[in-house]
Every structure is written in structure tokens, then in C-alpha cells.
């Protein structure tokens, strides 16, 4: 992971948007080679500022998750360039919350969080205290010694969030973190995420299928086209901070949601047409 970041840092042009925490220029990614290759993402230009909360929405397979993996350094891009600016040299500058499989069933709730801290080089006693603090903050203190299998999906995802935040990353990547969670629990988690992200501002890239979720949480909503995913529209969310999930009750919210959906609908249709034509591969 570090390798990719370092590669990019040395080739970056320092003049391009000095405030941008993440700056993508013509970035793209294909999977496979030859006639079977799938062009998943790009070329995409996108700047994400320090402390900004950006939501990525788009039809299935448009490369949202691929973009997150590029930022995380889990995948190298096929073309283009991305700069990720990290202040100082912290051991865990980027943390990722995945939709599933992110937490390890063979470790307890506390074990999962401490594991991330140990990997980040936090001392054992420190790690214990910090892990417990974050578990308490996400309402998991009583479940510290439980195995994830015994918890509900919503609680498991809280463990994943606690683990990501405990390392105090400068950039938090969330790849459809609430997709597999029931609607009520989802709203609770959105609320918690809002509170946390507003107490300590950090750069967040949040991938979701839900326009509503994007609008509630983000400073800016980026809509992407069907595969290969490129930038379709950007909407600055006008609700101030700190805000809570009640913003979705106002008339402005409904109007924004309709606007975004208007943009997105054609793309979703295009994606469906692509699937009918048999050109679409597995969701990327």
C-alpha cells in the first residue's frame, strides 16, 4: 500500500491544487487484458479537499469501489495519476471500511480494533485504552470480548468503523459500508457517522447507492456515469454543519434528491441496457 502512495508522491506536480487532499488526474483502471478486458473507471478528474466529506454515487459497476481502492493503494491505476497528500508521516494515514469481510471472525471485537492499532505500531497498553475508547463511542463497550459472528450486521459494521477510526486516519474511505444493513439501523449509523465526522473533521470518501444517504452525510455529492465511470455531475450540499439526519425532512432535500436522480437515471438505464446487451461483466 505504501509503495503505491510513494510512487505517486514522487511524480506529483506540487502546483496542482495545493489544498486538495486527494487529487485525481485522468485516472482510470481496466481489469484483464485483450478482448475480455473490462474498462471499469475513468478517465476521471477529481479533487477532494482536506477535511471534505465527499459521497460517490453511480450505477452498479461504474467504478466507485475501484476509485476507493485506488485511493487506498489496494490497486494500482491502469492510466492517469493520483496524488494523495498526507501530513507528516503517520503510520496509518488511510483507513478503509468495507461492506463485508472487513472484520475478522477469528478475533474478538476488541481484538479486531487492537489488531489495526498493533499493525499501525501503537504500543500494547496504549492500544487497549484507545480501542476501548472507540468501542465505547460506538456503543460496543459491552461486546468487547464477543466474537463478530455473535453480533448483528449493524453491530459488526460498527466494529469496522471503530477499527478504522481508532487508527486516527487522515483519510477515511468507506465503500458502501451500510449497504447490507437494515433501514433503521442504517439511519442510526448515519447519525453516528455524522456526529463523529463533525466532531473531528477528516477527509472522507463515502461510496453509496443511496442518494439520500449521500445528501445527508456529504459536503459534496459526485455522480458518476455508467461504466467506464467518469464524472457526470457534482453537487455541493447546501446544508451547513453541524447538521443531523433531520435535514432530510426539509423541502430543499427533496428537490436536491430529484435533481440528482434526474442525472443518474439515464446512467442507470444505460447500465441496464449494457447488461441486456451482454457486455457487462460482474459488478466491479
Amino acid at each position: 500500500m505504501r509503495v503505491h502512495l510513494d510512487d505517486v508522491q514522487t511524480t506529483a506536480d506540487p502546483s496542482s491544487g495545493p489544498t486538495a487532499k486527494i487529487s485525481a488526474r485522468g485516472i482510470g483502471r481496466s481489469f484483464g487484458t485483450g478482448p475480455g478486458a473490462v474498462h471499469a473507471l475513468g478517465p476521471l478528474d477529481l479533487d477532494i479537499g482536506e477535511g471534505e466529506f465527499v459521497s460517490l454515487v453511480g450505477p452498479s459497476g461504474c467504478g466507485k469501489s475501484t476509485f476507493v481502492r485506488l485511493v487506498a493503494g489496494l490497486l494500482p491505476p491502469t492510466f492517469g495519476e493520483m496524488t494523495v497528500r498526507i501530513e507528516g508521516d503517520p503510520p496509518a494515514p488511510i483507513a478503509t471500511v468495507f461492506q463485508g469481510f472487513g472484520i475478522f471472525p477469528w478475533k474478538t471485537v476488541l481484538g479486531n480494533v487492537k489488531f489495526a492499532l498493533a499493525a499501525a505500531g501503537v504500543e500494547r497498553r496504549d492500544a487497549n485504552e484507545r480501542a476501548m475508547r472507540w468501542l465505547a463511542r460506538l456503543g460496543l463497550a459491552d461486546f468487547a470480548d464477543a466474537y463478530p459472528e455473535t453480533l448483528s450486521g449493524g453491530m459488526r459494521q460498527r466494529v469496522a468503523i471503530a477499527r478504522a477510526l481508532a487508527t486516527e486516519p487522515q483519510i477515511l474511505l468507506m465503500d458502501e459500508p451500510f449497504a447490507a444493513i437494515d433501514a433503521q439501523m442504517r439511519e442510526m449509523l448515519q447519525e453516528e457517522l455524522l456526529t463523529i465526522s463533525q466532531t473531528e473533521r477528516r477527509t472522507v470518501v463515502f461510496v453509496t447507492h443511496s442518494l439520500e444517504e449521500a445528501l445527508v452525510l456529504a459536503d459534496r455529492v459526485v455522480v458518476m456515469t455508467a461504466r467506464p465511470g467518469t464524472l457526470l455531475s457534482e453537487t455541493r450540499v447546501p446544508f451547513g454543519r453541524p447538521r443531523d439526519t433531520r435535514v432530510r425532512e426539509g423541502p430543499e432535500f427533496g428537490r436536491l434528491r430529484v435533481d440528482l436522480w434526474t442525472h443518474l437515471r439515464d446512467e442507470v438505464q444505460a447500465q441496464m441496457a449494457g447488461q441486456r446487451g451482454g457486455t457487462a461483466q460482474a459488478t466491479l
Partner: peptide
């Protein structure tokens, strides 16, 4: 082993031993 575990582990920047 599900790819998800590999990815989660790599995102934590684990060394080969861990």
C-alpha cells in the same frame, strides 16, 4: 480465502508475518 480478507488486511498495511 475470500478476497475481502486479503483486502481488509492490506488496507491495514500488515506486514507479511502478521
Amino acid at each position: 480465502i475470500p478476497e475481502g480478507y486479503h483486502e481488509a488486511a492490506r488496507s491495514l498495511d500488515l506486514g507479511p508475518v502478521r
